[in-house]
Amino acid sequence: MAKSSPRTGEKIVMVVLFGAAATSVVVTIGIFLALLFPSINFFREINPIDFLTGTRWAPTFADASFGVVPLISGTFWTTLIGLSLAIPIGLASAVYLSEYAPQRIRKILKPVLEILAGIPSVVYGYFALFFVAPFILNDLLGINVGTFSVLSAGLVLGIMIIPTVASLSEDAMSAVPQALRQGSYALGANKMRTTLRVVFPAAISGITASIVLALSRAVGETMIVALAAGTRASVVNDPTDAGQTMTGFIAQTATGESTPGSLTYNTLFAVGLLLFLITLTINIIAGIIVRRIREEY
């Protein structure tokens, strides 16, 4: 029997899907090129080694210095603190929603949890600035922090990305075939052992993807760190210190006052390019890991 050719509707759908995929690739390349050319002009004046290893960041001062390590350290601290909060709470929420919550409760809790993802990040920033730092950290926990700190910014950043970890991990766990659970129960395992030894490993690729997505969002978040972390660009050695992140610098400097083509203007693109490459590297490494540990059913 001859193989039938695709219907006209299927061909149209395939073309539309291909166009969508190609558009995303073209946009990514366009973003890279938009960052690259001004960055080339920047590195014609500033040594790339000095840029990547210098510990003093003062691009607008009279005695300008362009060592990006302080911005990297601020980004590292806020991301680390955010993930330290979001990953355990997000995964615990996913386990409960997928394996323990009754259907009625799940239908209520999951939409409520996802509301957190819809709150504007600027609101989170003011929440960190006027509530977390003065009340939670100083008054309630007795941690001496100033108005600005990477600790308060990182904690609120973690709250913001909890829905990303929880929702995607819960979807991955819910997609695990019920037969695997039933086989585990038949061998005498209880619900907790089945969850930790069967469901969790089977969903590990989706869980890893959720963590990577949360990591990428934490690295690229702007308003929370711009408002709550501070504007002092110095190497952060303690989470109670104020610090500036790469995205915070871009948000606070890109005010339209920089002359296009000037060194200060090109600095924005150099930092943006570094941020782009860091995020791209994270996603490439995560993609390799996910492909190696992926389970298919």
Rank of each mutant, 00 (worst) to 15 (best):
A251I: 02
A251C: 05
Q252M: 13
Q252D: 14
T253E: 10
T253I: 07
A254S: 11
A254E: 02
T255K: 02
T255L: 03
G256E: 13
G256A: 06
E257S: 14
S258H: 09
S258P: 00
S258D: 03
S258R: 12
S258L: 12
S258F: 15
T259H: 06
T259W: 02
P260N: 05
P260K: 05
P260C: 05
G261E: 09
S262P: 10
S262R: 07
S262F: 05
L263P: 05
L263E: 08
L263N: 05
T264A: 13
Y265P: 02
N266E: 14
N266T: 09
N266I: 09
T267Y: 08
F269W: 07
A270N: 10
V271S: 08
G272N: 11
G272A: 13
G272P: 09
G272D: 11
L273M: 15
L273K: 08
L273D: 03
L273P: 01
L274I: 12
L275E: 04
F276M: 05
F276S: 03
F276H: 06
F276V: 02
L277S: 10
I278E: 10
I278P: 09
I278G: 12
I278D: 12
L280Y: 14
L280E: 04
L280Q: 13
T281N: 02
N283M: 10
N283C: 10
N283L: 11
N283T: 07
I284G: 06
I284Q: 07
I284C: 04
I285E: 00
I285A: 14
G287D: 04
G287Q: 05
I288N: 04
I288K: 07
I288Y: 08
I289A: 02
I289L: 06
V290F: 00
V290P: 00
V290H: 01
V290G: 00
